[in-house]
Design a protein around this nucleic acid. Structure first.
Lengths: 216, 216
DNA sequence: GCAAATCTGTAGCATTGGTTACAGAAGCGG
DNA sequence: CCGCTTCTGTAACCAATGCTACAGATTTGC
């Protein structure tokens, strides 16, 4: 497999496809060890083909806080930027779900961007979506209590069966809080029948959780 | 004056300049009334030529919280996005310093983007910078206390003479907090000699403030 | 089946930040 | 100069969150 097997790259012209075949493609398993560290130098774009990456910061106190996820078809696009200024990555990145990731070196990305409207489109779209998500997170941080943010997290990650497979520690990492606080909040949600708690996962009763979220 | 008088637009070719002459150009004075409201439909790009715009959210409790500023040469680029999805603006925008603003309608922006590498560059750069700023703010919100964020705000807005011309209410709006809390924090900074407080402004002693920030 | 590791539940206390409620100071307009 | 408005300073209290310290439950590996 090469990058050229995946849309939208499969749609590009022969010349672009030749460029793309230079790109390395790697499979990464889930791991707490960061793939990219804050301050690391980046000189290209990472494209997620399958799986999910998590971008997060670390507070001085050692808490993690998720900033956003990168899902299939999306990109860490700092390539263009890093060709001008010598940009260093502003956060940590880890593998959230086993992922296939392609790396497009800066010069290649730049050529593709100049040649292919599809790539311009992809880049701008990815960046715009990211801006919207980050703005939404900032707003949520100002507008919501931790309880409400936890409820949002659970609603967002619940499968069709209402199951959210995360330990409380992982939830705390997403929220930038601590395990004990999450336990306390989950306790409250259990008390009002919005979720049930188990080792390694919780089960969400969506309607009840929506209701509970309002009154937190 | 038209948009074509300002770089980088002045560098564009004749055909692009013809397009740009269709764009309206308006001067706006400082005003608390929002220029753009959350949820409003946008169908183009706003380019700030001089002055400064402020992008902020409102919490249910009625607090404002600044998300970022738009300074000369920068753009609210949601044009491309809004041609695909019918995007609504995710926050409020107000005039922070008297500003000249050009509006480039969506279709015009799209043509320019397709024609002119300079515009592609400008767009991607603006978006990347915005992503970095938003990530930095999210990180700050997780990592810093309100006192530290206030110190950062003051350091960032201090003139060469150390003067920061803002009322405490305005500072509170930037931070998403309330006037009383800001007063309390400024009181602490005054007590340790980091700033002096006056009606409508504070004077920063930079070195002392940097030191004080660590121990908040 | 047992020990170690991991995860959850809970309680108490400290800190931060938000709210309420005033009092006084500074500027402004007439 | 006087009254109105705006801005600042303060205090007391409360709610949300963080931190410390365990105890008990579940799972895993051997």
């Amino acid at each position: 497999m090469t990058l050229t097997d995946y849309p939208p790259f499969s749609l590009l012209g022969a010349r672009s496809q030749a460029l793309l075949r230079q790109c390395s493609l790697q499979r990464h398993e889930v791991s707490p060890a960061p793939l990219l560290g804050k301050g690391q130098n980046i000189s290209g774009a990472y494209v997620v083909l399958s799986g999910c990456l998590r971008v997060y910061t670390l507070t001085p106190a050692g808490h993690e806080a998720t900033q956003y996820f990168i899902r299939p078809g999306e990109t860490c696009v700092f390539a263009l930027n890093s060709l001008f200024n010598d940009v260093r990555y502003p956060a940590w990145v880890a593998v959230e779900e086993a992922a296939e990731i392609a790396f497009i070196p800066g010069p290649v990305f730049r050529s593709l961007f100049a040649l292919e409207p599809v790539m311009q489109d992809l880049t701008v779209r990815t960046l715009s979506v990211l801006v919207f998500r980050l703005m939404a997170m900032l707003e949520e941080m100002h507008a919501c209590t931790l309880g409400q943010r936890l409820a949002n997290l659970l609603l967002l990650h619940a499968g069709a069966d209402g199951r959210v497979s995360m330990t409380q520690q992982v939830m705390a990492n997403h929220l930038g809080s601590s395990r004990e606080v999450v336990a306390r909040l989950i306790g409250a949600l259990v008390a009002c029948g919005a979720v049930s708690s188990h080792r390694g996962y919780v089960c969400v009763r969506q309607a009840a959780l929506l209701a509970a979220r309002s009154g937190m």
